[in-house]
């Protein structure tokens, strides 16, 4: 007798626990509004990333094609995996003095771990983190980027 009672008790408990679980799934099945999924890439037009999101290192230029990078190489030293290579050149200034200026700011996106250390180490805020995260390419050579625009100059007043 006790065996039978136990047997039916187990069946009752089993069914109850299964139904409790199914109540939750059933709730979401009937409340479609509470489902939060993003339909990427269909929502590409409206998708905005957070302003601090680290997608890639970029060097902003102003409308006169000027940047703030002095070529001090602090970011190159700060980078843990050598993603940044700065090639400098000597430039003749109008007043006759020679000054160190950047020639090319080479950035290896394929090596970068988005650790932000270069950005915080830059004394003149020349580089920032961009929000673009769609980096897939067919040829990995294209991931080596030159951040300063061609013919760009150092912004006046930045030392």
């Amino acid at each position: 007798m006790a065996f039978l009672v136990n047997y039916f008790k187990t069946i009752y408990k089993t069914l109850k626990s299964l139904l409790t679980g199914m109540k939750v799934t059933g709730y979401y099945f009937t409340h479609l509004r509470e489902i939060h999924t993003e339909e990427y890439p269909d929502n590409r037009a409206t998708l905005t990333m957070f302003d601090r999101f680290r997608g890639e290192v970029i060097m902003p230029h102003n409308t006169d094609n000027e940047h703030r990078c002095t070529g001090c190489q602090a970011c190159e030293i700060a980078c843990p995996n050598g993603s940044i290579k700065i090639i400098t050149k000597q430039e003749l200034l109008p007043d006759g003095k020679k000054k160190k200026r950047i020639d090319t700011f080479v950035y290896h996106l394929d090596l970068c771990t988005m650790c932000n250390l270069c950005v915080v180490s830059c004394p003149s805020d020349a580089i920032v983190m961009g929000q673009n995260f769609e980096h897939s390419v067919y040829d990995k050579k294209t991931l080596k980027k030159i951040l300063n625009n061609p013919d760009s100059k150092l912004m006046a007043g930045v030392e």
């Binding site: 089993t14 409790t20 939750v24």
Partner: peptide, 10 residues
């Protein structure tokens, strides 16, 4: 919800 769906499940 967590408990309903997993913890108590037989």
């Amino acid at each position: 919800e967590y408990d309903d769906i997993m913890s108590g499940n037989v």
